[in-house]
Amino acid sequence: MKRILFSVLALGALAACNPAIPDSGAGVGFDNYDTYQQKQAARDAALGGGALPPPQAVSSETLAPAAASGIASVSNAAASTDTSGVVQASPANAAPVLRASGISDENNFDAVSGQRSIEGDAAKRAQNQQQYQVIQPTALPTRQGRGGPNIVAFALEAKNAKGQRVYKRNSFNAANKYRKNCAGFASADQAQQAFLAGGGPAKDRKGMDPDGDGFACTWDPAPFRNAVSG
């Protein structure tokens, strides 16, 4: 008897946990699809009851000035007495009339073609070219005073290229002398000037020109030569 009662209770619990399967043909949120179509048609008819008026039916009358409700409105009298040329923002003011400003004669092809011609422009250009003044390069001025060797003049006087041996050099401990003495100058121009002041390019007591081209350390005469030759 207990087993039968237990079985009945178990079947009842399973039936309560198993939900009913909905009918897919009934639709979602309504009874069936036919009822949905009827409700949708009624809704569309209600929404489409007020059609938009045609463009010509819109009135062109000027709106009356809004009453003061926390926002200041400009009256017609204030707008008429305003001499600043600024149109006040008010519904009572008429829309400003926009006028075409046009373009200047300089940018107007029709106007310019009536005043100038291709031949006239060519003659004017030739006249301007005759007034050009070509300044020829001149020799460098001689430095006055005791300012030390002129590395620019030396670069122009020397005819050999960088790395081309011209002078005899002592190769004993040449690499160490080169690194030590060249490291004491802030620029290659200063090194070349000190090299010339110390007897260079014929003599190289400090080993600043180990290849014998007459140019100390990393100094290169090419920039000075290119500046003169153009």
Rank of each mutant, 00 (worst) to 15 (best):
K2A: 12
I4T: 05
V8K: 03
V8L: 10
G12E: 04
N18Q: 12
G27E: 04
V28Q: 05
Y36L: 07
Q38F: 06
A41M: 11
A46Y: 15
G49A: 12
L52A: 15
P53W: 09
A57R: 15
L63G: 12
L63S: 11
A68H: 15
S69I: 14
G70R: 14
G70L: 07
I71G: 15
S73A: 05
A79F: 12
T81P: 07
T81V: 09
T83C: 10
S84M: 08
G85K: 08
Q88S: 15
A89I: 13
A89F: 11
N93Q: 12
A95Y: 02
L98I: 05
L98F: 04
L98N: 03
R99L: 03
S101N: 03
S101Y: 02
V112C: 01
S113C: 09
E119N: 06
Q127M: 03
Q129S: 08
Q131F: 03
Q133A: 15
V134D: 01
V134Y: 05
P141L: 03
Q144E: 10
G148H: 05
N150E: 01
I151K: 00
V152C: 00
L156E: 08
E157D: 07
A161T: 03
A161S: 01
K168T: 04
K177M: 13
C182D: 01
G184T: 09
A191R: 04
Q192K: 01
G198P: 11
G200Q: 00
K203E: 05
D204V: 03
R205Y: 02
G207E: 06
G214Q: 00
A216W: 02
D220T: 09
D220K: 07
R225M: 11
